[in-house]
C-alpha cells in the first residue's frame, strides 16, 4: 500500500521573527503537536490542536497565535 499526502492548513501560527526558540510552547502543549525546526523556531508539526491556548499564553514573546481550526470555524 502506498500513501498520499494530505494538505491541511495549520491553525497555530508562529511569528518566526519574534520566536526566540525557548521551547516553552513545545513543552506545555497537552497534545504534543508543536516542535522546533532546524533554525530553532517553533512550528505546528501535527494537526491535532484542541485550541486550548497554553502555547500562546505561556510564550514569553507573544510569538504564537492560535486560530480556531477550519472545521470548527
Amino acid at each position: 500500500m502506498t500513501s498520499v499526502t494530505k494538505r491541511t492548513s495549520p491553525n497555530v501560527i508562529v511569528d518566526r521573527d519574534k520566536c526566540i526558540g525557548c521551547d516553552i510552547c513545545v513543552q506545555v502543549c497537552p497534545m504534543g503537536i508543536l516542535a522546533m525546526d532546524k533554525e530553532k523556531k517553533a512550528y505546528m508539526k501535527y494537526n491535532e490542536c484542541w485550541y486550548c491556548l497554553p502555547c500562546e499564553v505561556d510564550c514569553p514573546v507573544d510569538a504564537i497565535t492560535v486560530e480556531i481550526p477550519y472545521l470548527v470555524r
Partner: peptide
C-alpha cells in the same frame, strides 16, 4: 464539527 480533536474533553 467532525473535527476529531474538537471534543468537549481534553483530547489527551
Amino acid at each position: 464539527t467532525g473535527y476529531l480533536y474538537g471534543t468537549y474533553e481534553n483530547p489527551t
